[in-house]
Every structure is written in C-alpha cells, then in structure tokens.
Design a protein around this nucleic acid. Structure first.
Length: 465
DNA sequence: ATGGGCTCCACTGTGCTGAT
DNA sequence: ATCAGCACAGTGGAGCCCAT
C-alpha cells in the first residue's frame, strides 16, 4: 500500500483519483446520466473520501510500526525506514493538518531521525582544561532527596576534604568552562593559540599568597549580573577576562540555546563555589609537572556579567554581550593551567552525547591515552556520583547510556565486562591510539596539545571576539 | 522573509518498587 | 540478584507567534 501511495506522490497525482477507481462501484444509472456537474461532484467527493481513508490507514500503520520499536528507539530503528515514513507523512500534510496523532508522530519521527543522523563535524575544536575535569565531580539535582549543601568528599591522595556549594555541577557547566577557556587562550594568543607556555604562578607558595590577597578584596560581586559601563570597565581592568555574545557561544557548543538559557547557564556556573584539591601544572625548569594545590578558602571559577544588546519592543532580549573575568583564586588557577598548556581537545560533537557519557569521558579518559583502562564499578560510581542503589539497573545504565554512545561516537573502541574479577564487577575500556591530532585543522604536537601555529579557521572564528 | 522565543510533547536517562 | 514497569525531570524538534 505504501509503495502505491509513493508512486502517486511522485507522479504528483495526490488530488486525482487512481484510474482504476473511477468507475469502481458506480451504479449504472449514474453512469448513464449526462449531467456533467453531477459527475464532477460525485467524482471529487468520492476521491477525497477514499484518499482520506487510505491516508488514515497509512498513518495508523506508521504509528503502529513506530510504537513496535523497542526502546531506546534511536538504537533500534532503521534510519532509511524512518526517513521514508517521515517523507510519507510530510506528503499527507494537507489531509491531516490539525490531527493530534499526526502531529505527535511527526514530532517523534523527526526527533528520532535527528538523533540517529550522525552529527557532522563543523570543524570546531575546543580545549578542555585538565584541572576542572580531574578535580570537580558532578553534583546533580535529585528529585525527592534534598541535596545537602555543601556537597563534600575526601580527596584520596591528600586526605583533604573538598566542597562544592551554592549550586549544582554537570555536563553543561563543564562545557561552559571549555568554551570560555578556549576564548581566553585565543585572546591571550592574539587570535591564535599561544605558542609558548606562559604560566601565572611559579610555585605553590605564590598561589597561597595570591589566594589570601584575592580574598582580601572580596566580595563586591553582587548577585546583580546586569552591568553598566563602570562594571564593564572594572572587568576590563582585570588581568584575565573575555567577552562574547550569544552567536559566538552557540557556535562553540553547536547547541541551540536561547539567549535566556545561555545567560542562566553562565550565571549558575559562575555562582558555584568550590574548595578543592586542584591539579596545577608547574614548569620546573624545562619540564612540566603536575602538583596539587589545597585551597584554603572557597572560590568561584569566574565573575560574570552581561549587557542586553538587542531587545525587541515586546521586551524579549534577543542578544546579550557577556563579560567574564577570571579574577578569583580558582579562575586564576584555571587560567594558569590553560596558559601552561594543561588541556586536551574535544570536537563539537562531544556536547551532543548523553550527559553521563560526557562526564565519564572527562573523568576517566580525556587526559590520558592508555589503550586499556580497567575501571571497577565502584570507581565509576564515585567518579560520576551516580545514585542508583539498584546495581543491576546501574550497570545497565553504564552500558547503554555511557559506553555504547561513546563507542558510537568513536571515542572508545570497545569495552569488556568482567564479573569474576578479584574485586567484583569491572569494566575494561579499550582504545586504539588517540586520533592523530595533526589531522585537525590545527597543527598540534605533544601530550597537552601545544600548538605550533594557528590556522585560518581559528582566525575567522575569533573575529569579533 | 527571517529568525529568535515560546509551547507542546516524545523520547531519554535515572531512580525506585515490587514480583520472581 | 534480576528484571520489568513505572514515575519524573531534562532535553530538544516542530510549529507557531511575533517583531524586525
């Protein structure tokens, strides 16, 4: 039936009857009538009714087929079939406009098709700073359970207690740090990534001194984030700051967020306060070595403000200019690590992965290039701050929502599940060698991606920043 | 015409419960 | 322990609205 329908569509005969139907079921005495008007009327009505009937049948079949797919649908559907069905539905539009069922199936199909269609790489590469990925665990909103703030945990190596206060921390917040970190690097490098490391701190002691100094001139950063000229001047006088607008931010993350959503995300990210054991890359003569700094005081990652740029006459803000200053303890450590080349690369498709897949990659994989990585389930639970008490469901979640999407995206090759190990359930992640970064548009060398030279794409991107 | 914001709602990710 | 089923919140596409 569907094939016939298709043929009709392609011959643009949607509004005309199929020939074999013309006389079908027409009583003789009608046929004898010479009343052309009557014939036309009969003809049209009948055609419309029949097409409607057939349309509804096809609609029902598509809906049935779709509902029959096991979940998650995007991993069990055939993309070509979905596309064909979607095409059919689009052609039926004029007959079914306003039909609730029709609207739902269109929405469902288009979402699943979109999810199944591989992201094309728009060429955007972002850096991701190592300290953030290593030191900050995700703290997610839980429904019934009221989160205890500050969230705290013990750092294994140092035995120090770490804290996160005043908000949650998840995949989107890590993403913000990637993007603004990249902006900072490009700004410092005059539209190119800096060629030579330019550390801010020379040793642990200089950090401690700076930390106590910064805490002295705190905290004028009010909750008022909308800025006036004076506020902007104040930001521009700080040592490390960046500015950008919605358009640039959307391009960097390859996600479609409204200006309000972007502002709220930045605002929430800037308000979270940390007291951490933070990895700091120190250049000891010629060699870079990672040490950890035990923070004495709570710090935010950056100070944030914005100016409304384009406001529609009905009050809707369509574009904002954002200002970010890294003039906090953690902000300067972040800037220090970036300028000391303690970062890794991500491409824009990364931010479309399920949240936990993103966080998993950050916590366990991005900062090394081991080809085989054994991880106990307890380690994964701890690293991702997973909540599910039901171990069966939890391991299922790890496989379907984290490891399989990572394989699909090509970030890992495979994994092995070992239930009989000495230490209980264990996953072993398998990777071939890290994708050669020289294939990227940037010429990259070294473990942390020291950039030999910038490129045209980068320059173009940074215009207007 | 264009394009951002808003609403609606399907789908996913996660956690919980109860049966086996 | 394992599994299915349910609940619920977060995410994002379609389509509409509205201003430019």
């Amino acid at each position: 039936m569907i094939v016939q329908w298709n043929q009709q569509l392609h011959s643009k005969q949607l509004k005309l009857p199929r020939k074999r139907n013309i006389n079908h079921g027409v009583p003789m005495h009608y046929g004898q009538s010479n009343n052309i008007m009557y014939w036309n009327f009969f003809f049209k009505e009948r055609t419309k009714a029949m097409i409607n009937e057939e349309t509804l049948l096809i609609l029902a079949k598509i809906i049935d087929d779709y509902n029959a797919l096991p979940e998650p649908k995007y991993r069990n559907a055939n993309l070509d079939v979905l596309k064909r069905d979607y095409e059919l539905l689009m052609q039926m539009k004029e007959f079914l406009k306003g039909d609730i069922q029709y609207a739902h199936i269109i929405n469902a199909l288009s979402q699943t098709i979109n999810k199944m269609t591989p992201r094309n790489d728009n060429g955007w590469r972002s850096v991701t700073e190592r300290g953030i990925n290593k030191a900050i665990p995700p703290v997610v909103r839980k429904k019934k359970q009221v989160n205890q703030f500050p969230f705290e945990w013990i750092d294994k190596k140092s035995g120090e207690t770490c804290f996160i206060n005043n908000g949650y921390w998840g995949a989107r917040n890590y993403m913000v740090m990637d993007i603004i970190g990249y902006y900072l690097l490009l700004k410092e490098g005059k539209d190119l990534l800096p060629k030579e490391p330019a550390p801010i701190f020379s040793d642990m002691n200089s950090i401690a001194v700076r930390e106590s100094n910064i805490s002295g001139n705190n905290i004028t950063s009010s909750n008022q984030s909308s800025m006036n000229d004076q506020d902007i001047k104040r930001v521009e006088q700080t040592r490390y700051w960046v500015q950008f607008d919605d358009r640039e931010f959307r391009k960097s993350m390859s996600l479609d967020m409204s200006s309000n959503e972007i502002r709220d995300l930045l605002l929430e990210t800037s308000r979270v306060e940390f007291k951490l054991v933070f990895p700091v890359r120190m250049w000891n003569g010629k060699k870079a070595k990672e040490q950890t700094y035990n923070m004495n005081l709570f710090s935010r990652l950056f100070e944030f403000g914005y100016v409304d740029r384009d406001t529609r006459s009905d009050g809707v803000v369509q574009s904002r200019q954002y200002y970010i200053s890294f003039n906090t303890t953690l902000g300067e450590l972040f800037a220090h690590n970036l300028l000391s080349k303690s970062y890794d690369w991500l491409d824009n498709r990364f931010y479309s992965l399920p949240y936990n897949a993103q966080v998993f990659y950050r916590r366990f994989l991005v900062h090394n290039d081991y080809m085989s990585i054994p991880l106990k389930v307890e380690t994964i639970i701890e690293g991702l701050n997973l909540q599910d008490k039901n171990i069966t469901n939890l391991t299922g979640t790890i496989e379907t929502n984290i490891l399989k999407p990572l394989i699909e995206q090509g970030l890992i090759d495979s994994y092995e599940k070992d239930t009989e190990g000495l230490y209980g359930l264990k996953f072993t992640i398998k990777r071939s060698k890290k994708e050669n970064p020289k294939e990227n548009h940037l010429a990259v060398t070294g473990d942390a991606g020291s950039v030999k030279e910038g490129c045209r794409v980068c320059k173009e991107r940074m215009q207007g920043l």
